[in-house]
C-alpha cells in the first residue's frame, strides 16, 4: 500500500473515532451525580431558585441531553467550543492559552527522556552486566518508580533552594514581563522578540520540570532500548557485521540501533502523547499552567464546555501522535514500504 493511500485511510478513520470520543466524554461528564450549578454558584446564589434557573438557562443546562450534545457538535464544527462556565471565556481561547505551556514542557520532557533513555539503553546493552549496566538499571528503576511529585519537590529543594542552580517554579521569573505573544511558547516568542535574556530565563525554568517530567519516560525508554538492543545484538547479521571487520561503533550504531529502535518509537509516541495530555502534578508543583491543570480545574468545577474541549483536544493529540508513530515505522522499516 502506498503511503498516500494509507494516510488517507487513517485520516478518514479519525472522524468516527473523534465523534465516538465526543459521545463518550459527553455522556460520562453528564452522568456524574453532581450538578454544575452547585459547583459554580456560591452557597447563597445556589439557594436562590431565580439565580439557579437563570444559570441553567444561560448555560443551556435546561435542555435535554441530546439537544445539548447536538448543539455542542454543531458549534464545534464551526470551531466554537463554547464558553467556560467557570471563567466566562471561550474555551478555544483558553486552550490556545494553556496548550503552548504544555507543548513546551512536554517537548522538553520528551527530549530529555529520549536523549537519556536511548544513550543509557545502548550503553547498558553494550556493556551488559558490567558495573555501568547496573548503575543504569538502578537509575532507570528509580525513574520509572519514583513518584513525580516527590522527584519534583526533592529537585526543587536541592537544585533550587540549596544549590541555586535552577530557578524556582513558574515559566519565567515573577518579576519578568513575558514576551509578546506569537506562538505562546516562551522559548520561541522570546527569540522572535530578540530578547536573549528572556530566552535564557525561559530555558532555565524549563530544565527542572522537564527533567522531572521526563524521568519516568526516560526510565521506560532505557529499559526498552536495552532489551531491544540485547535482542538485536544476538542476531546473526550482527555477528556477520562484526566478522566483516567493521568497527564495533559502526556495528552498534548503524546495524543494531536502527533495528532496535522500532519498539522504542512506539514508547516515545505513547509517552509524548501522555505528556502532552497534561501532567497535573508536575504542572501544579511547578506552577506551570498548562492543559493538565486546566483539565483538573474543569473537572473539579464540572465545567462541561471546558471538559469537552480538553477531552477533544487530548483525543486529537493521541490520534495524531499515533499517526506520526505509524509514519515513522514506515520510514524505519523498509519491509512496510516494500512489502
Amino acid at each position: 500500500m502506498s503511503l498516500h493511500v494509507y494516510l488517507m485511510r487513517r485520516l478518514v478513520l479519525m472522524i468516527p473515532l473523534l465523534v465516538g470520543i465526543s459521545i463518550v466524554s459527553f455522556t460520562i461528564s453528564n452522568a456524574i451525580p453532581a450538578d454544575p450549578t452547585a459547583a459554580n454558584l456560591g452557597e447563597r446564589a445556589a439557594a436562590d431558585p431565580d439565580i439557579v434557573a437563570a444559570f441553567r438557562h444561560k448555560w443551556g443546562l435546561d435542555q435535554p441531553l441530546h439537544v445539548q450534545y447536538l448543539t455542542y457538535m454543531r458549534n464545534l464544527l464551526r470551531g466554537d467550543m463554547g464558553t467556560s462556565i467557570r471563567s466566562h471565556r471561550p474555551v478555544v481561547e483558553e486552550l490556545r492559552r494553556y496548550l503552548p505551556a504544555t507543548i513546551e514542557l512536554a517537548t522538553a520532557g520528551i527530549l530529555v527522556s529520549v536523549i537519556a533513555g536511548v544513550i543509557f539503553g545502548v550503553v547498558s546493552a553494550v556493556w551488559r552486566n558490567k558495573p555501568i549496566d547496573f548503575v543504569v538499571r538502578i537509575l532507570s528503576l528509580i525513574g520509572v518508580s519514583a513518584p513525580v511529585f516527590w522527584l519534583a519537590l526533592i529537585g526543587l529543594l536541592v537544585l533550587y533552594l540549596r544549590w541555586d542552580v535552577v530557578p524556582g517554579p513558574g515559566r519565567l521569573d515573577a518579576r519578568v514581563v513575558p514576551p509578546a505573544r506569537v506562538t505562546g511558547l516562551y522559548t520561541v516568542d522570546s527569540l522572535v522578540a530578540g530578547d536573549l535574556g528572556l530566552f535564557r530565563n525561559s530555558i532555565e525554568h524549563l530544565l527542572l520540570p522537564a527533567l522531572v517530567l521526563g524521568a519516568y519516560s526516560a526510565g521506560l525508554i532505557t529499559r526498552i532500548t536495552r532489551s531491544s538492543m540485547l535482542e538485536v545484538l544476538s542476531q546473526d547479521y550482527i555477528t556477520t557485521a562484526r566478522s566483516k571487520g567493521l568497527r564495533e561503533w559502526v556495528v552498534v550504531m548503524r546495524h543494531a540501533l536502527r533495528n532496535a529502535l522500532m519498539p522504542v518509537v512506539t514508547i516515545i509516541g505513547l509517552s509524548y502523547s501522555s505528556l502532552l495530555s497534561g501532567a497535573v502534578l508536575t504542572e501544579t508543583i511547578f506552577a506551570w499552567e498548562g492543559i493538565g491543570r486546566y483539565a483538573y480545574n474543569a473537572a473539579r468545577t464540572l465545567d462541561f464546555p471546558a471538559i469537552m474541549g480538553v477531552s477533544m483536544l487530548i483525543a486529537l493529540v493521541f490520534v495524531v501522535t499515533n499517526l506520526v508513530v505509524d509514519i515513522l515505522y514506515y520510514w524505519l522499516d523498509p519491509r512496510l514500504r516494500h512489502g
Partner: peptide, 21 residues
C-alpha cells in the same frame, strides 16, 4: 504588586525561602 498563582503550598514555602516571593 505581582500576585503569582502558586497552587501548591509546599511550592509557596520553597519560593519564599529562596526569596523569590
Amino acid at each position: 504588586i505581582i500576585i503569582q498563582n502558586l497552587p501548591e503550598t509546599s511550592t509557596q514555602k520553597l519560593i519564599l525561602e529562596a526569596g523569590d516571593i
